[in-house]
């Protein structure tokens, strides 16, 4: 943490972690878009739109919850490590 090389390495890893988190969000949003697209197709063709909407109501929140849990963990870890740093510095 003292050497500049170390911090730059940390930064790269941190951005990679951020990227992986955003990948999960992209994945989840892609699934939501996909399901919404299927609903629009089923409405368009009048092909059991009720069932499609019912399934989407269950499926989409599940995916979003999963992504939020991951984000919560990631943010939770980092929020703390900063305050911890301050604490140790303060001590």
């Amino acid at each position: 943490m003292n050497s500049t090389e170390n911090t730059s390495r940390d930064k790269i890893i941190f951005t990679a972690q951020l990227a992986s988190i955003s990948l999960i969000w992209i994945f989840v949003i892609a699934i939501a878009i996909w399901i919404l697209n299927l609903i629009s197709v089923s409405v368009d063709l009048n092909d059991a739109p009720g069932i499609s909407i019912a399934i989407s109501l269950v499926a989409i929140p599940v995916f979003f919850t999963l992504a939020s849990i991951l984000t919560y963990v990631f943010v939770g870890f980092h929020k703390n490590s900063k305050s911890d740093l301050n604490n140790t510095l303060g001590d």
Partner: peptide, 27 residues
């Protein structure tokens, strides 16, 4: 390092992790 998400084993981190695991196992 990339996969460990900055885990330092602080109490707060433990709390966050436990809470997340608890939600997940119910889900």
């Amino acid at each position: 390092d990339f996969l460990s998400w900055g885990w330092q084993g602080t109490d707060h981190q433990k709390k966050v992790l436990n809470r997340a695991i608890n939600i997940l196992m119910v889900m």
